[in-house]
Design a protein around this nucleic acid. Structure first.
Lengths: 203, 203
DNA sequence: CCAAATAAGTCAACAAGGCTGACATAAATG
DNA sequence: CATTTATGTCAGCCTTGTTGACTTATTTGG
């Protein structure tokens, strides 16, 4: 089993074929055709209109990220570097632990990327003043320039899309996207957004 | 076939001056501060409000995909399998070439994933009727069930987000997302969407 | 009719960026 | 002073991308 979360092992084979299957705690065993017979009443099919949004999100993200990739490739950097640099530049003095919580990757994964960013002079680390164990992260001038360049590229695309969608004010879209984040994360994401953010109060 | 690599090159030294390296894979000297001097007029800084959308898109996608991962892990499947299965189930009889164009990955990458999906009975391939070179892709009943389950999961999240954003009708969001796709791709994406799709005409 | 183009598959090697587990170090804290 | 915390590191593995160089059927165009 692939491990996404440690607690995933909890899913264990359930019931026999005639066990009433709870939709959310489904079985695990390699599902054969017999496991999903026509006899099991098919759940209400997902609204095609809603599925459209899922697909649009995929296509939007697919193309959106590729644009920055081209620039990053000039410097032999990848998306992982981009994300780290962006959030560091965005929040100067960010702690490593905070960055980890934003990116939701392991510290070993981040370490590899961060090491390259530091070695190549995109990011510098300063010892924390109140807590000298901390390595506060700052984008160098060079790092700020690159981050700025990438931000501009992506901001332009967002701007064009907002206009194309006939929206001078994208508040509804911001609220939609914020609501798409996990509820447990929403407050943190909201807190991270700039004061001028196009989202009002979190519900 | 593919011309853009989303992942970047190695940190390995490339080509001497007489070896005309591919533009995309050329190793570039570490950019020093001198490469981005103040003399180059600093562009207008990106609107923080627009950058917010970039971040929200990141967070939304980050959490959105993790939800399906949990289900996929039960079957030892990954996101690559999910994407392939989804679009096959969505368009029964899809050609391999079409799927490649949707996913924007190489056929070698797809082959690996597709082989597993076929071997494990999620997808079957039929010889094309008009063109017998084609291997038309269909989700098996089992594959349809899984795809349906994942779609339902994601559709529910979209639905909740639409409601939370106070939108009974998400047309503006659909238009926004469609506009976020590359202009060259937009027509194809639009054509793929179901008739009931919440987007009117492409401009 | 046959040469060339096309649809798809395959082998081999490699890169990027995730992951786990185990351990190291310095500083803060009770 | 023992323990916890913030961070770093080594070693190895997995998924999913990539290139390049073919092969096999089948269709198509001259």
């Amino acid at each position: 089993m692939r491990t996404i979360d440690p607690h995933m092992q909890a899913y264990k084979p359930v019931a026999t074929a005639d066990a009433p299957a709870d939709k959310r705690t489904r079985r695990i065993e390699p599902v054969t055709a017999a496991d999903t017979p026509a006899a099991v009443p098919a759940a209400v099919p997902p609204d095609p209109k809603l599925v459209t949004f899922v697909e649009l999100l995929f296509f939007a993200y697919r193309d959106f990220t590729r644009e920055a990739d081209v620039v990053l490739a000039e410097y032999n950097l990848g998306r992982a570097h981009h994300r780290a640099l962006h959030f560091v530049n965005r929040s100067p003095g960010l702690k490593v632990a905070e960055l980890l919580d934003i990116l939701k990757i392991t510290k070993q994964s981040l370490a590899r990327v961060l090491k390259e960013l530091v070695d190549q002079g995109w990011i510098i680390q300063h010892e924390g003043t109140s807590d000298r164990r901390q390595r506060l992260l700052y984008a160098t001038e060079k790092g700020q320039h690159l981050s700025h360049r990438l931000d501009t590229l992506q901001a332009r695309r967002v701007d064009e899309a907002l206009r194309a969608a006939g929206l001078d004010n994208g508040d509804s879209i911001a609220r939609f996207l914020l609501s798409m984040t996990s509820s447990e994360e929403r407050e943190k994401v909201w807190a991270l957004l700039p004061a001028a953010a196009p989202v009002s109060r979190a519900p």
